[in-house]
């Protein structure tokens, strides 16, 4: 996945400076690039410290030059940061498959719920959406309109019993023969204890097969603590990065990968329902590293 990196490192190491100076210069540049892409500063420092240590300590195997060995080290450490280079499996592992959407306010949960409905419907699945955001005015209308546009089953109730709506919605959808059931929840952040408790309660009641964390590409350093708190409350199974059609690089999502171990499955590239793509690690690495 990192051919581009390989080239960049190679070019850099072609400089006439001695090995240690070249390594230091490279590491500094890498730090800058990653921080500008919103990768968590602590993660970046850990990564570059490790690269430097290995570069100065490890002896290349016979026949390999130190500079070639350095390329391999950088490659390995970056692959580690990005969570490997396998494309995600987006097929449900069983039927029915219940997905619970979570994320901070405005990250794109409801829109992504609509996009996922379309994605799976097009692939032949019977899909149901459950609107369990009882906080944001108009949230249920928003999801209802998206469900109508896509043409999938839709459930909600008036009132503010989010846990009850989610529970009855999933039961209803199962009875209707839905194969993929997606529950949209309210936005919340890590200081909203009541809302986190609610999220935990919803998960307890519906027992989701996959909790999907929706991350805005523009989020900065708070991505890490945010993902940590969410993961502690309801273990995260997968990640979606939204709004990659803007100028933000999306490095915040890497913090979520690092602290949850969950793979990035989809990316959002626009507001429209078909603007959802299966995540491609290669493309993303190139974006973050500015290659």
């Amino acid at each position: 996945m990192l051919e581009g990196v390989r080239d960049a490192v190679r070019k850099f190491l072609r400089s006439s400076a001695d090995y240690e100076t070249s390594v230091n210069m490279f590491v500094k540049e890498l730090q800058k690039t990653l921080i500008k892409s919103d990768v968590n500063v602590r993660l970046v420092l850990q990564l570059t410290r490790r690269i430097k240590e290995r570069a100065l300590k490890e002896k290349p195997p016979p026949g390999a030059s130190r500079r070639d060995w350095f390329i391999k080290i950088v490659y390995e450490e970056l692959a580690n940061l990005f969570g490997g280079d396998v494309e995600p499996d987006v097929k449900p592992k069983k039927i029915p498959w219940v997905i619970m959407m979570v994320g901070v306010q405005g990250s794109g949960k409801t829109t992504t719920t609509g996009k996922l409905a379309r994605f799976y419907k097009v692939r032949g699945y019977r899909v149901a959406l459950v609107a369990a955001d009882t906080y944001r005015p108009g949230a249920k209308d928003q999801l209802r309109q998206l469900a109508e546009r896509v043409g999938v089953l839709f459930y909600t109730e008036p009132g503010d019993d989010a846990v009850g709506i989610a529970k009855r919605g999933v039961e209803w959808a199962k009875k209707k023969g839905a194969e993929i059931i997606i529950v949209d929840t309210a936005g919340r952040h890590r200081k909203e204890a009541d809302l986190l408790k609610e999220m935990e309660d919803i998960a307890k009641e519906i027992n989701p097969d996959e909790v999907m964390l929706v991350i805005d590409a523009s989020i900065g350093q708070q991505a890490k603590p945010l993902a940590e708190t969410f993961h502690k409350t309801t273990p995260i199974g997968s990640i979606v990065i939204t709004k990659l059609d803007g100028t933000a690089k999306g490095g915040g999502a890497l913090s979520a990968v690092a602290v949850t171990g969950a793979p990035i499955k989809f990316i959002g590239t626009g507001e429209k329902l078909d603007e959802l793509e299966v995540f491609k690690p290669k493309k993303f690495v190139a974006r973050i590293l500015g290659l």
Binding site: I35, A217, I219
Partner: peptide
């Protein structure tokens, strides 16, 4: 502007 925004605030 969202306070959670990182580097993109400049661009926005």
């Amino acid at each position: 502007l969202d306070a959670l925004t990182g580097n993109d605030a400049v661009e926005q």
